[in-house]
Design a binder for these strands. Structure first.
Lengths: 136, 136
DNA sequence: CAGGATCCATAAGGATACTG
DNA sequence: CAGTATCCTTATGGATCCTG
């Protein structure tokens, strides 16, 4: 039996896509602001101290860096190690769970490499059509 | 020649991870708010009208829906078709470029399925350690 | 050094009402 | 129906100062 497009569209009216969309949960976890640069840095360059991260990310403020690191630690994606010395030393490294995101990031890189140019082109064409032809 | 961790960390100080992180460009394109539910819906249920989308997404307001649809159209991920009738009819469908995100979404779903529970568990353990043991 | 606390600017998003 | 326009609330991030 073939499911028609109309049947699928009728069904669409009964689901809540925020819940139905199965990737929604990841967004808050790995794609909050600053999280990908942090994870990427820790994955590429290994364990780093707080100040190292701040220098590496460059445009992030200590407050926001702290917030994001806490969230990532709470979600189990990074590991925070506190060394009780004077002055104190704290090191962050990516966890196994964090490393499990690698294939995902790889897929993303591939998409960027293959399709970002197409997006740029689409934008130029869209913007070029400033004299709206119809229906705007 | 083996690149040491220290060498890599030293190098990290000289790059700008916002630019170095190769997936940064995708975030604004496909992971802006509401974009994944929209793309997911159009990909799953096919072409839909404005009101259908609004009913499907349920908690989105027309203003925001319009904004997101414009952005997706500009980026070439969806196609907008205007039918000059009375009342007017507008249909949205996913483009080939938008469909090229399918493997990405699939990878995401897999990660969610396999690892979301671990995140939940990490959160509970983190929250359970309210009596901060050290370094907080 | 690694942050916590505080205050402030900006902007994204929601609610509501209205139009071609 | 498919949006626009307007107003307003809230969330996010930046700047600054301070501390164990």
């Amino acid at each position: 039996m073939v499911e028609t497009a109309d049947a699928r569209r009728a069904h669409a009216a009964f689901v809540q896509p925020e819940q139905a969309c199965p990737i929604a949960p990841v967004l808050d976890i790995v794609f909050s602001r600053w999280t990908t640069p942090i994870l990427w840095t820790l994955n590429e360059y290994g364990r780093q101290r707080f100040m190292e991260l701040q220098r590496t990310i460059a445009t992030i403020t200590p407050k926001v860096l702290t917030q994001r690191l806490r969230q990532l630690e709470r979600d189990g994606l990074i590991v925070r190690t506190y060394h009780p010395e004077v002055p104190p030393r704290v090191e962050y490294e990516i966890s196994d769970l964090g490393r499990s995101l690698a294939p995902l990031f790889a897929t993303l890189s591939e998409w960027v490499e293959g399709n970002l140019a197409k997006v740029e082109q689409a934008r130029q064409e869209f913007d070029a059509a400033e004299q709206r032809p119809a229906g705007r």
